[in-house]
Design a protein around this nucleic acid. Structure first.
Length: 870
DNA sequence: GTGCATCCTG
DNA sequence: CAGGATGCAC
């Protein structure tokens, strides 16, 4: 008794330990998180100097609020770089400059020296830089995008745990940026081609521009201007003090090349430009509004054409992704609707696409000459007129290009997928970029007023509410305009957008193709992204990783007991039988369910927990009167449906589960044990809790594997064991194995069987002691007087316990043994040996020698049937 | 250290 | 009947 408390305490402690383990884990993760935060903070600090700002990674909860600060920082950084860039470039005039820029840019990209600045290897810094490069490299990303993601919008909320938030879903700026960066390298090569093309275009444009006085002046001025070419342009053109006014023009010259940097500058400047520009151009606004409207209309037309192109493109890839196409079509339809509703958004979206830059490259020239009226108001109007004319030309050009694209597509189609697909992708990509760029340019012209442009950008960002950081540049910016995306969860969106690059890189054919997809996506086609999203984001998180983890964790819980036993063996049931299920009927259900709960639902569900219950009983189960026994596998099969038998195959339950599903359970079962009387008693379920803590057991439990050999002990097995007890009170392990050949023996099974017999003995000896004392109390003086017949109460009690149904004829030998045992107890008690705590041991020694051989019939799985019939 | 048996408890 | 704890034997 006194020990009882201690025992309880011990038990509790044990439990505590388990719990503690879990806690530790948790703590560990928490610590990890902290460490991570710390690192992030340190990183931020390190960044601080470079960025001039403190972008607290941790604080970044919202993309919006943080993004601004981050952006500013980024902008600063970028500006610095840009300045250096410009300095280097300064010497080169006109087209030469551009070419130089392009070269530099390319070289940079190619070098992959994303330039680790102060932060060093820190990912955040790297990510930023990479992001920049990516933007610069592939003009695909709109400036806004590049900026928005900006600094390291540090991933997710710092608070979140370490692993989860970052990688998988959230396309945190980091992740996205990194992924982008990675893919960017690949893209660089591709981009080179684009750059070359760009360069050629730009040079041509510049040449054309060079003729205009403005350009020349700009170039000359630019040399000294820190702010860059743009500013210089502005100054030269407009008297206005602020370089802002001219900025648009400046862009045209440099933008295409400088890409990221310039874009950054643009953003900053845009607002300023607005002011000055507004002042200067106020008079023109009205005209411009009209022009804008027209431009919008034109833009819409262009967009429609682009959609058509996209559709064609998708059709080509139908085979690959039909589903995606469907989505895309839907998305397109939605988009078109949206676009019509608000042209601004569509424009924004386009801008957001990195394509803008290219357009700017081309269009800027026009812009410079046309838009930059800032210098001379008088001339501004003239420029506007020209602009309108130019726009018209542009559109025509665009149309022509589109036609070309179509032709190319046709050709591609004829060629077929495979290699043709890639080429097609590239071609389409280029073409689309060109077309889009032109459209954008046109639009930009229309929106010459910076305010609108700026506002648009903001709108884009805001539109992407879900994307906090907007880290996923293209994705974030692009999607918003197009309604379709909404269907996707915010997370998925990100995943799709930002991840698109990385993801594509994995599976998809070529980087070009990827880029194409992205662009398409940007245009509003959800097609590509959605699949990817589901893939990387959702499925990856949910199904893939988590499940395993869960299982692992869950397993330990189950195992606990077994571990105590010392079950080295457990884990590996080297023996044929996988994990044996314990047999406790009642108990198991709960444990099973619990265990199952932990494990990934998907797998486990297949096996209904309920099954775990006792199948056995019902099937045969007639306890009833004597002959209740229906041993045999047959019965099992019958029963199996319900119960699923306990059989569990340690083996690949999962696989089986997955492949087969619940159904197969019944297949293999053979079992001898039929459901018999014990019904409820059946042990079948107990496995879970039972000693078998092994993983295998766990696995086994969940599935009802069906194999010829049962993995678990069934109620029939229990009954059989009880009948065997009439012959042997101390069966050896080998004997048990021989007589339970239909069971896969593992440590758990063995232990359980031994436990059964232990319990049998316990009951047996208790009865013996009980009746011996009773006899003594009744006045029996000589042990010889004690006899055990079939009519004896003692026998009844024993028979009731071991042969409840009384359907088995108890061997005479058992009566003899029982009588001997009773007398032993009687003598011992009379002798007063019971004073000795271990006085029973002597009796046990005697009794254990009285075991007789068990009939061969018990070796048969069907023994119960046979025995019962008899 | 492991397995087995017992005792005790639920 | 099972689980936990304990003790013993190998």
């Amino acid at each position: 008794m006194p020990d009882h408390d201690s025992t309880t305490l011990l038990t509790r402690q044990t439990k505590r330990r388990r719990v503690d383990i879990g806690v530790k884990r948790t703590v560990g993760s928490a610590i990890f998180t902290r460490v991570r935060e710390t690192l992030l903070d340190s990183m931020n600090q390190s960044h601080g100097p470079d960025q001039d700002g403190d972008c607290s990674l941790v604080s970044h909860g919202h993309g919006g609020t943080n993004s601004d600060g981050e952006k500013s920082n980024v902008l600063r950084k970028l500006l610095k770089r840009a300045n250096s860039y410009e300095d280097a470039i300064m010497p080169f005039p006109g087209a030469t400059i551009i070419s130089q820029l392009l070269k530099n840019n390319m070289g940079k990209n190619g070098g992959s020296d994303s330039g680790f600045q102060g932060s060093g290897a820190l990912s955040s810094a790297g990510s930023e830089i990479q992001a920049e490069d990516a933007c610069s490299n592939s003009s695909r990303d709109s400036p806004s995008d590049c900026l928005s993601p900006g600094p390291p919008l540090p991933p997710p909320p710092s608070s979140s745990s370490f692993g989860r938030p970052l990688p998988p879903l959230s396309l945190n700026s980091h992740n996205s940026s990194q992924s982008l960066s990675l893919s960017s390298f690949d893209l660089d090569r591709l981009s080179d081609e684009h750059l070359r093309a760009k360069r050629a275009r730009v040079e041509n444009i510049i040449r054309g521009m060079s003729h205009s006085p403005l350009v020349r002046s700009n170039n000359s001025n630019s040399s000294n201007d820190h702010r860059g070419d743009r500013n210089s342009h502005d100054h030269s053109r407009s008297d206005c003090p602020s370089s802002l006014l001219s900025s648009p023009g400046s862009r045209g010259g440099v933008v295409s090349v400088g890409e990221v940097y310039r874009e950054n500058k643009r953003k900053q400047r845009l607002p300023q430009q607005q002011h000055s520009f507004t002042q200067l151009v106020c008079s023109r606004q009205e005209q411009r509004h009209e022009e804008r409207r027209q431009l919008k209309l034109q833009l819409e037309d262009m967009q429609k054409q682009l959609r058509q192109l996209q559709e064609k493109f998708y059709q080509i890839y139908d085979s690959e992704t039909e589903e995606e196409e469907e989505n895309g079509e839907n998305g397109e339809a939605d988009r078109s609707g949206e676009r019509e509703e608000d042209g601004n958004l569509s424009e924004d979206s386009i801008r957001s696409d990195g394509l803008e830059e290219r357009h700017r490259d081309r269009g800027r020239q026009d812009d410079l000459s046309e838009l930059d009226p800032g210098l001379f108001l008088d001339r501004a109007r003239a420029l506007l007129r020209e602009q309108a004319l130019i726009d018209g030309e542009m559109e025509e050009d665009v149309d022509g290009r589109e036609e070309e694209e179509r032709n190319s597509e046709r050709v591609m189609k004829k060629r077929g997928g495979g290699a043709g697909g890639r080429q097609l992708a590239e071609t389409l990509k280029q073409e689309l970029n060109c077309a889009v760029s032109q459209v954008v340019d046109t639009v930009v012209k229309g929106f010459s007023s910076p305010k609108q442009a700026v506002s648009h950008h903001h709108g884009c960002h805001s539109s992407t509410p879900a994307a906090p950081s907007s880290s996923s540049n293209s994705s974030s910016s692009c999607p918003p305009p197009f309604g379709p995306l909404p269907s996707l969860t915010p997370d998925s969106r990100f995943g799709g957008g930002a991840l698109a690059l990385s993801l594509n890189g994995d599976g998809s054919p070529t980087s070009n193709y990827h880029s194409t997809n992205q662009r398409l996506h940007c245009f509003g086609d959800v097609i590509v992204p959605s699949p990817l999203d589901s893939f990387g984001g959702l499925s990856g998180r949910l199904s893939g990783v988590p499940m395993p983890n869960d299982q692992t964790e869950a397993l330990p819980l189950v195992v606990r007991k077994s571990g105590g036993g010392g079950g080295g063996e457990n884990t590996n049931p080297s023996l044929p039988p996988p994990p044996p299920p314990p047999h406790h009927p009642s108990l198991h259900p709960s444990p099973l369910t619990a265990s199952l709960g932990f494990s990934p639902p998907s797998f486990r569900h297949p096996f209904p927990l309920p099954l775990m219950g006792y199948p056995f009983q019902s099937p045969l189960g007639s306890h009833g009167g004597g002959a209740g026994y229906h041993p045999g596998p047959k019965d099992h099969h019958r029963s199996s449906p319900d119960s699923m038998d306990m059989t569990r195959e340690t083996v690949s339950l999962r696989t089986k589960m997955a492949s087969l599903g619940g159904g197969h359970l019944s297949h293999h079962h053979h079992r001898q044990s039929s459901p018999s009387q014990h019904g409820p008693e059946s042990l079948s379920l107990s496995l879970i809790k039972s000693e078998c803590g092994d993983l295998q057991d766990m696995a086994d439990i969940s599935p009802y594997s069906s194999s010829t050999i049962q993995e678990g002990l069934s109620p029939n097995h229990l009954k059989k064991a009880k009948l065997m007890f009439f012959y042997t009170r101390y069966p050896s392990s080998n004997m048990l194995k021989m007589y339970f050949s239909d069971v896969k023996f593992n440590r758990c099974i063995t232990s359980q069987l031994i436990k059964w017999f232990s319990n049998f003995r316990e009951f047996y000896y208790i009865q013996m002691e009980k009746f011996a004392r009773q006899a003594i109390n009744e006045g029996v003086t000589a042990a010889e007087e004690l006899t055990v017949g079939r009519d004896a109460e003692l026998f009844r009690a024993l028979n009731m316990h071991y042969n409840k149904a009384n359907d088995f004829e108890v061997p005479e030998r058992f009566l003899e043994v029982a009588q001997v045992t009773l007398r032993e107890f009687f003598n011992a008690i009379v002798a007063g040996k019971d004073a000795d705590p271990s006085w029973k041991k002597a009796i046990y020694k005697v009794i254990c020698k009285l075991d007789s051989e068990v009939p061969e019939v018990f070796k048969s799985p069907n023994c119960l049937q046979e025995l019962l019939h008899d």
